[in-house]
């Protein structure tokens, strides 16, 4: 067993455990911390896959930003100790398994057409250096348009969030 496999197993355990905590916990705060564990595990996967820029972005944006935002949301709303309903999870499980089957069919049904993907070759190493990522974002041939759209999206989200959260007139102002 190589170090990569060990690291993978540890990260996989953390990720899935975090997801299960998110699903199964009674407190919203526990769920948020479970989500944090899961997201950190995914960041670890990115490291293993050689995409360190994405891993760090994941930590900065998700763990340092989004999860903190959720914790704020949790603490600004009343405690909701809603009991977990086995029945609802079972019903949801049927849908989830159906979706999973569709996904598996879609992914492995076209396994012959995974162009250039070799499942046993191992992840790329030394790829996706920050300079290349930056160039790809700024390259007209590559991702410039999505990049600009994403920046507009962020601006709109910023203005929208401020506008929605602003309490004008009515209650509580």
């Amino acid at each position: 067993m190589s170090a990569e496999i060990l690291a993978f197993l540890v990260l996989a355990t953390a990720t899935v455990a975090g997801g299960v905590v998110t699903l199964w916990s009674r407190y919203v705060v526990h769920s948020a911390f479970g989500l944090m564990l899961s997201l950190l595990g995914v960041a670890g996967f990115y490291v293993l896959l050689g995409s360190d820029f994405l891993a760090v972005t994941q930590v900065v944006v998700y763990v340092g930003g989004v999860v903190v935002l959720y914790l704020f949301g949790v603490m600004l709303t009343p405690p909701d100790r809603e009991e977990r309903s086995i029945r609802r999870i079972a019903v949801a499980g049927i849908f989830a398994v159906a979706a999973l089957v569709v996904l598996l069919k879609a992914v492995f049904g076209m396994e012959g057409r995974w162009y250039g993907v070799d499942p046993d070759r191992g992840p790329a190493s030394g790829g996706a250096v920050i300079r290349e990522v930056g160039n790809a974002f700024m390259d007209k041939e590559a991702y410039l348009l999505p990049f600009e759209i994403a920046s507009v999206l962020l601006l709109v989200a910023l203005v929208g969030a401020v506008f929605i959260a602003r309490r004008e007139g009515g209650r509580g102002s």
């Binding site: 760090v56 930590v59 340092g64 903190v68 250096v129």
Partner: peptide, 23 residues
Amino acid sequence: PLGVYLLAALLSLQVLGVVMAGW
């Protein structure tokens, strides 16, 4: 290669520890 960015990420990580401790 991502030194500064990684450092900022690690600095932002400790918010969660503090929130966890407080809660």
